[in-house]
Computed example of a mutant assay.
Amino acid sequence: MGGYLLKRIVSLLPVLFVVAIVDFIIIHLTPGDPASVMLGSQATEEELANLREQLGLTLPIYTRFFQWIIGILQGDLGWSIFMDMPVTEAISEHLGPTLSLTILAEIIAILFAIPLGIMAANRRGSWMDQSFMTFAMLGISLPSFWIGLNLILLFAVQFNWLPAAGYQPLSSGIVNHLKYLIMPAVSLGIMQGALIARMTRSSMLEVLGENYIRTAEAKGLKMWIVTYKHALRNAFIPILTVIGLSFATLIGGAVVTETVFNIPGIGKLIVNSVLRRDYEVIQGTVLMIAAAYVFINLIVDILYAYIDPRVRYDKS
């Protein structure tokens, strides 16, 4: 296992380097001038030229890229022009709300999706299975911002049960924390839950047709033992893959939801940085999200060996 982990970690470095190159080039080729945004429309050309030189925007693009890469190797993602702080500090300040939102959304998705997928697989072709497929298709099709707006209209405006927007940290109390996160988490988790549920149903249908499942049923084992102890464990690897990918997707895909619910997370940081042309922050957050994707995939690969004993990463 140790050798496999070392190889996988080394193999991640070229991936992150290519992501860094694409990230840097796309952002710096995008039209926009941070100096014009900072000084406003009344600034003279001399003032703009002086500020561009102070910010290093007059240097060749390859020079700025290598300076950025060297900074990353030293743990420095750059300096935010508008926030006047290191990019790592800006990301850490906004990371907490995003992690709270994505973790809660993933928990909601898993708690509803896996049992529904199992029930649909056990009752293949029934009205319950058809209803499940219909709701799953709706969950995949409906955009999260539309769901969020309807939740606000229903639970915040009509019933006045939950706050319409905003965020309270965990230090304010778990109940108060969840009151502000439950609606955005539900709107964000419905689509991922639908994907996990469809994969659960598909994977369970494949396993439930195996001979060892029929043997377990013939021995008189209870249905819930056959389903959860024998079938689910063997069907869980593709489900785990979708769960890992969905969690990574939630981290990068919370931009719209955080904007709708005014949550000060990574999504809102990206939107504000794009509007202000704060290049360093955009580069840093995109690279951080890409790193989250590759490391979550690594964790999922490691978990395979613990879930399914047939999976081994050593030479034997």
Rank of each mutant, 00 (worst) to 15 (best):
I72W: 09
I107L: 15
V22L: 14
N122T: 08
I25G: 06
M199G: 03
I147S: 04
M199P: 02
K268R: 15
A90R: 08
L51C: 04
A248K: 05
M119C: 09
P115H: 14
G3A: 09
G117W: 11
I196D: 12
K268D: 08
T63P: 04
L269K: 08
I91H: 03
I289T: 13
L250I: 02
F145E: 05
E53K: 13
M1A: 09
L51D: 06
L153E: 08
E93S: 07
R201T: 09
S246K: 12
V10N: 00
L5D: 00
F82L: 03
F112M: 14
A218Q: 05
A121S: 12
I110H: 12
S141C: 14
L104M: 15
H94A: 15
Y167P: 07
I147C: 02
P184T: 06
I140Y: 04
T259V: 11
I237E: 02
A165L: 06
T200C: 11
A291H: 02
I25Y: 12
I307T: 13
V294W: 03
V271L: 12
T215W: 00
G173M: 03
A197I: 09
R124E: 13
G78A: 08
V255S: 10
E217F: 00
N176T: 07
T88N: 13
L104V: 14
V286F: 14
N262E: 06
P34M: 08
M183R: 08
F159S: 10
S203K: 02
I302A: 02
P34I: 05
N272R: 14
L178E: 00
P184H: 04
S36H: 00
L39W: 01
I190N: 04
M183Y: 08
I299T: 06
V22E: 01
M1F: 05
D76A: 07
I25P: 07
G244I: 13
I21T: 10
R52H: 07
F66A: 01
S144K: 05
I190S: 03
L250A: 13
P14Y: 06
M137Y: 11
G3T: 11
Y304H: 10
G78F: 02
